[in-house]
């Protein structure tokens, strides 16, 4: 096995072919990274951004909404209000399973139209059982059906959220008002939080979201309903771009039966506090110790 010239030539040829094939394979990746703005690549975590950096980030996202979706949007970074912790309650006795809440979420939060994504899944449950395994989220018939009741499930905004603990890069955290948010520009898309969540509340952007320009909701929050990038996690934020400014969540406004009650848990005069004080409320999977801020109750 001496290195004859022929052998050397063959090797050089082989190595060049290999290198060329390799270069060709990664070419699209190289092209993609060349398109990417260096500022975008180097962008720091949301909580490390000063006001200038934040303004840059926001204007970049507003620009790309125009550029990629043809929509003029306003993105704001609405901060939590001191003295406010949000809670949500849902009256199972009057929910009729119409899924208006899920649809309102779909539109308000600029969800992908192709997958018809929503942060809310409504389960049709059998009377006499509170077991999700006997429930069905794929029902397709007039509601309410006899001997059924309906259980919408969204992010429970846990006080002890497993999704936050497991995130390797702190891309998701609990805000002072109890809302668990995701920095879409920091998430690496490992989906560990999706595995950790006991409520199936988290969603992954398996594709770049598709939304026609005229359907884009232009009133956007940086940490909530702005159009998400491909390959990152997202979740219900109790519509923080609305609720932090005194409005109600879109799902609540859409509910035709008034089954939903939302408010400040720290305000003794709030509706939510009245529900907690006067109804026999329960939380989902209390045994897991996640301490949800989303409560369910029956009227009777």
């Amino acid at each position: 096995m001496t290195n004859t010239p022929r052998r050397t030539h063959l090797k050089v040829l082989g190595a060049s072919l290999g290198a060329a094939a390799f270069a060709k394979t990664v070419a699209p990746l190289v092209e993609w990274s060349a398109d990417m703005d260096l500022d975008e690549f180097m962008q720091r975590h949301y909580r490390e951004l000063d006001s200038n950096a934040l303004a840059d980030v926001i204007s970049r996202h507003e620009f790309s909404a125009r550029d990629e979706y043809g929509a003029d949007v306003t993105i704001r970074d609405v901060r939590p209000t001191p003295g406010v912790v949000f809670g949500y309650a849902l009256n199972l006795s009057i929910c009729i399973g119409c899924r208006k809440c899920a649809e309102a979420c779909h539109q308000e939060n600029n969800h992908d139209r192709r997958s018809h994504q929503s942060y809310i899944r409504v389960f049709e449950m059998s009377a006499g059982s509170i077991d999700f395994h006997r429930g069905n989220a794929g029902y397709d018939h007039p509601v309410p059906a006899p001997d059924k009741y309906y259980m919408p499930v969204q992010c429970q905004q846990c006080e002890n959220p497993p999704c936050v603990s497991v995130c390797p890069v702190e891309a998701t955290w609990s805000e002072p008002d109890g809302i668990v948010v995701v920095d879409y520009d920091w998430c690496i898309g490992c989906r560990y939080c999706e595995a950790a969540c006991p409520y199936h509340a988290r969603r992954f952007n398996w594709h770049k979201p598709e939304i026609p320009a005229d359907e884009v909701n232009p009133n956007q929050g940086l940490l909530s309903n702005r159009i998400r990038p491909q390959g990152v996690m997202e979740k219900c934020t109790f519509c923080l771009h609305r609720t932090r400014q005194g409005q109600l969540p879109a799902c609540l406004e859409a509910c035709p039966t008034g089954a939903r009650v939302f408010g400040n848990l720290l305000d003794p005069e709030s509706d939510i506090r009245w529900v907690l004080a006067n109804k026999r409320v329960f939380v989902l999977k209390e045994e897991l110790g996640t301490r949800p801020r989303f409560f369910y109750f029956f009227d009777v």
Binding site: S33, M36, F41, H45, C167, P168, V169, E170, A171, W186, C187, I188, G189, C190, R191, F204, N205, P229, Q230, G231, V232
Partner: peptide, 18 residues
């Protein structure tokens, strides 16, 4: 990873290491 381009976020010292 959905975003392998952000791999550096998980490198201690460079990113935020939970």
């Amino acid at each position: 990873l959905g975003r392998p381009d952000r791999f550096w976020h998980i490198i201690p010292g460079l990113g935020r290491f939970n």
